[in-house]
Structure formats: C-alpha cells, structure tokens
C-alpha cells in the first residue's frame, strides 16, 4: 500500500464520516461543523492530486469564509434542533432509495468502465502562475461574468437582509 493510497483513504474516511454525520446530526451547528471537516479533508485530497492552489483556496474561501457565514447565521438566528414533519417522510420513502440506487449505479459504471488507470499524483503541479494565465487569458470572459455575478449577489444580499423599517426610516 503506497503512502498516497493511505493518505487518500484517511482523508476519504474523514470526508465520508463528515458527510454522514451531516445527515445524522439534528442540530444545524453540528451539521455545519461536520461540513467544515469534509471541506478541510477535501483540501487534503486536492493536495494529493497536486492541486495545491485549489487546496489553499478551498480552505480560505469554503472553510474559512462561506462556512463562517453559515455558522454566523446559525448563531444569529439561534437555530434549534429540527423537528420531524410529514413532508420529510415522503422524501425518505421515495427520495432516499432513488438516490441510493443512482449512487450505486454510478459507482458501478465508474468502476466498470473507466478502468482503474492510476492518477499520476504530482504530475500536474498546477502552479498559481499557470492557473492565473488560464484564468485571465483563456477564461477571461467567464471570469468577468462571474465578477458581475458576485456584484449582483452582494447587492441582492444587502437588499434582502436590510430591515424594511430601516429603509422606511431613512426614506422619511
């Protein structure tokens, strides 16, 4: 067993445990913490794949910024344990078996047909300079479009989260 496989299995086990824990836990803050664990372990997987820049961005943006927002909102709204309702039972009856079948089918197809060619780890260093070249040269238009998207998202978040009374007071 090579070191890479051991590390892959280690990080993969953390990912799987975190993802399952997200489903099992009833309190949103526990789910958020297990999701953070999944993201940190995924950063480890990216490192194994030689994508160190993506790994760093994953930790900074996903685990360090987006999930902080989630935790912030959970704290702000003082979200409690969730309770069972009728709607969820229908979802369990039909949704879960469907998803499981789909997952098993996909897994079977992937294992069967893609063969098991090994990924040459570290063969693709993905240095930030090359990524920057791609991002600002070949993918310049999508990049600019996403910047507009982010701008719209900022304005939308401000408009949505502002208290209606506050704007009325300002208008007066």
């Amino acid at each position: 067993m090579s070191l890479h496989l051991i590390l892959f299995l280690l990080f993969g086990a953390i990912c799987v445990a975190g993802a399952v824990n997200l489903l099992v836990q009833r309190h949103p803050i526990n789910s958020a913490l297990s999701l953070i664990a999944v993201m940190a372990a995924l950063a480890g997987e990216y490192l194994l794949l030689g994508a160190e820049f993506v790994a760093a961005i994953q930790v900074i943006v996903y685990a360090g910024a987006i999930m902080v927002l989630f935790v912030f909102v959970i704290m702000l709204l003082n979200a409690g344990e969730e309770e069972e309702t009728k709607g969820s039972r229908v979802a369990i009856l039909f949704g879960v078996p469907g998803v499981l079948t789909g997952a098993v089918l996909t897994g079977w197809v992937v294992l069967r047909h893609s063969g098991t060619e090994p990924v040459p780890i570290g063969a693709l260093p993905g240095p930030p300079t090359e990524i920057a070249h791609l991002l600002f040269h070949d993918f310049l238009l999508p990049f600019e479009v996403t910047s507009v998207l982010v701008l719209i998202a900022i304005m939308g978040a401000v408009v949505l989260a502002t208290k209606p009374e506050a704007t009325e007071r300002k208008a007066r």
Partner: peptide, 14 residues
C-alpha cells in the same frame, strides 16, 4: 498511485 475511479466514487458519495 490512486486510481481515478476512487476519487470519482468519493465525489459521487459526497
């Protein structure tokens, strides 16, 4: 060396 399909399986599981 880890086969590509392992990564795909993990991604699919998530």
């Amino acid at each position: 060396m880890v086969p590509l399909s392992y990564y795909l399986l993990l991604g699919g599981f998530l």
